[in-house]
Design a protein around this nucleic acid. Structure first.
Lengths: 104, 104
DNA sequence: TCGATAGTTCGATAATATTCGAATAAACGA
DNA sequence: TCGTTTATTCGAATATTATCGAACTATCGA
């Protein structure tokens, strides 16, 4: 559990970010993080098994979408908003904005 | 070959669009379409086998990213820009903008 | 109606992902 | 140091994708 790997800003790849966001569960997590700021993993599973969520968090982490800090036994997650906005301006905004006319 | 299925605007799902864009080959196709307007499939394979490209075009079509019209024996492809912009404002722009600081 | 052209579909293989229970690890307080 | 809490890792089953050759289909012009 020690060190959780995160890509540096310069290593973040658009296609991987898009892939990470292309899953409904992960997109949901991202939206909640955007809305609530920082959350533990447990706060974001919706009754799903921990191991499944851990997988999704890893995809989000590895792609550079989410930053996970260790805080005691818990892991605090947050969006890497500033970095993503700098790299891919408008991307996160467009994904976080839910249009009534559009399907998730 | 007859009728190529396309989702109506109201049926386009964000996660599927993101998935379609998350592949380097497809992202490339999308960028070229954005740049050149309308292209045949053949004009966009970069030496790749037809069957592979056909697969990618289908993903792009099924997700609602690309519209394919039949024009003689050829298929003309174009981005469904207006519809996508309406559904997911800013998404396409952000994906089409290549920042020097960011990896594809 | 016979090519020639442009893509699709089929089928098989290899590579990746997803899911989730069970085992493991890390951090902290008593 | 022993639980308790929180999350990761392992392992195995299942599912989904990507890739590409070969066969097929559609369209058009000669």
């Amino acid at each position: 559990m020690r060190t959780l790997k995160h890509p540096k800003a310069g290593e973040i790849e658009l296609t991987r970010v898009l892939y990470a966001l292309s899953d409904p569960v992960r997109l949901d997590v991202v939206r909640q993080l955007a809305h609530e700021g920082t959350c533990t993993c447990a706060a974001l599973d919706h009754g799903r098994p921990k191991s499944s969520m851990s997988h999704h968090f890893r995809v989000l982490r590895d792609s550079g979408v989410v930053l996970t800090r260790t805080d005691g036994p818990a892991h605090m997650n947050e969006l890497r908003r500033d970095e993503l906005d700098r790299l891919f301006p408008g991307l996160l905004d467009s994904v976080l904005t839910v249009k009534e006319t559009a399907k998730t």
